[in-house]
Amino acid sequence: MLRYIFLRGCLAILVAFTVSLAAFLLLNVASDPAQAIAGEDATADVVETIRARYGLDRPLTVRYFDWLGGVLQGDFGESYYWHKPVAALVADRLDETLTLALSALAVTIVIAIPLGALAALNPNSWIDRFALGVAVSAQAVPNFWLGLIMIIVFAVMIPIFPVSGDSTWRHFVLPAFVLGSSSVPAVMRLTRTGLIEVMGADYIRTARSKGFRGWQLLRRHALRNAILPVISVLAVQLGQKFGGSVITESIFAINGLGRLALESILGADIPTVQMLIFVFAIVFVAMNLLADILNAAIDPRIRIG
C-alpha cells in the first residue's frame, strides 16, 4: 500500500509541476504582461517602465524558476492589482470557496446516489425513466441560467434565501444547489450502471437466496463494489468545483477564489491568476490522488495490480 501511495504521489507531483509550467508559459508568452498591466493606450516608455519595475525584462526561464522557488518557500508573489501578497488574497477567500465546494458536493451526493440506486433497483420502470430525466435536465441547464432562476424564485418571488453574500449558511444554499446540480448526471448514471452490473453477479444471487432484498441487499453487498468508480468521479468533481466556481460565485456575489480569479483576469493581475491556476490544479491533482488511495484501500486488487 505504501509503495502504491508513493508512486501515485510522485505522479501527482509531476502533474502539478507540468501544470505550473504550462500556466506560466500561457500567461507570459501568449501575451505581453507589461502591456496588459499598462493598458492598450499606454506608450512604449510606460510599458518599458512597468516591465523593468516588475522584472518582466528578465529571461523567461529565470522568471519561472524564481516564481517556482518562491512557491516552494510559501512566497506566491505580490498582486499587481491589489498590491498585496498573493498568499494573503488566496487565504482570505479560501474558506468561502471550500465551503461552497463541499456544500455542492454534498448536494450531488444526496441527489445523485439515491436516484442512481433507485433506478438500479427498478430498471426500465417509471422510476428509472424519472431518474434519467432528472440527469438529462441537469446536464442541459447551464449554471448561470439556473442561478438566475433560483434567485428570481427563491430570493425575490419567495424570499426564503438571501440574494447574495456569504456571511451565513443560508447564503450558500442556492449557490451550492446550482453548483452541485451540474455533477448530478455523471454521478447518477455511474451509480446506476455500476449497481445494475453488480446486481447480476453470482454473489448477489447468493445473497438473495439468503433472504436479502432491496436496500438491505444494496447496502450490505452491492454498493461496496459499485461505489469504486463513483468515488473517483466525486473526487474529480470536488476538484472541478474549485475551478468551476467562477460563474456561481459571480452570480451570488460570493467573495471566494472563483470571483478573485475573475477580478484578477479583468485587472490583468498575472501573479494572482497564475497562482490561482496552480492552486486549482493542486486541488484537482490532490483529489485524484485521494480517490486512488481510497479505491486501493477498498479494493485490494487495485494496489496489487
Rank of each mutant, 00 (worst) to 15 (best):
I5F: 15
L7N: 09
R8V: 06
A12L: 02
N28M: 01
N28Q: 05
V29H: 10
V29Q: 11
A30F: 15
P33C: 11
P33M: 12
I37H: 00
A38H: 03
D41Y: 09
D41M: 14
A42I: 12
A42R: 07
T43V: 02
A44G: 00
D57R: 01
T61V: 11
W67E: 02
W67H: 09
G69N: 07
K84N: 03
P85F: 09
V86W: 05
A87M: 06
A87V: 08
D92H: 09
L94D: 10
L98G: 02
L102A: 15
L105M: 15
A106F: 10
T108I: 04
I109Q: 03
G116L: 05
L118F: 15
A119Q: 00
A120L: 10
N122D: 11
N124F: 14
S125Y: 07
I127D: 04
D128M: 07
R129N: 06
F130T: 08
A138D: 00
Q139H: 11
A140G: 14
P142I: 09
I149T: 12
F154K: 12
F154H: 03
F154M: 08
P159R: 03
V163W: 08
S164R: 12
R170N: 10
L174H: 09
S181L: 14
V187D: 01
L190C: 06
T193R: 01
T193I: 10
I196F: 00
G200A: 07
G200K: 05
T206F: 03
G211Q: 10
F212K: 04
G214K: 04
W215A: 12
W215M: 13
Q216I: 08
L223K: 03
L223H: 13
V233N: 07
L234M: 06
A235R: 02
L238G: 00
G243L: 09
G244Y: 05
I251Y: 03
F252W: 09
I254L: 11
N255K: 13
G258Y: 01
R259K: 15
L260S: 09
A261M: 14
S264C: 11
I265P: 13
T272I: 10
T272R: 09
L276I: 10
A281K: 03
F284R: 02
V285N: 06
V285S: 11
A291Y: 13
L294A: 10
N295S: 09
N295H: 05
N295T: 08
N295D: 02
I298L: 13
R301T: 13
I302G: 08
G305H: 01
G305A: 13
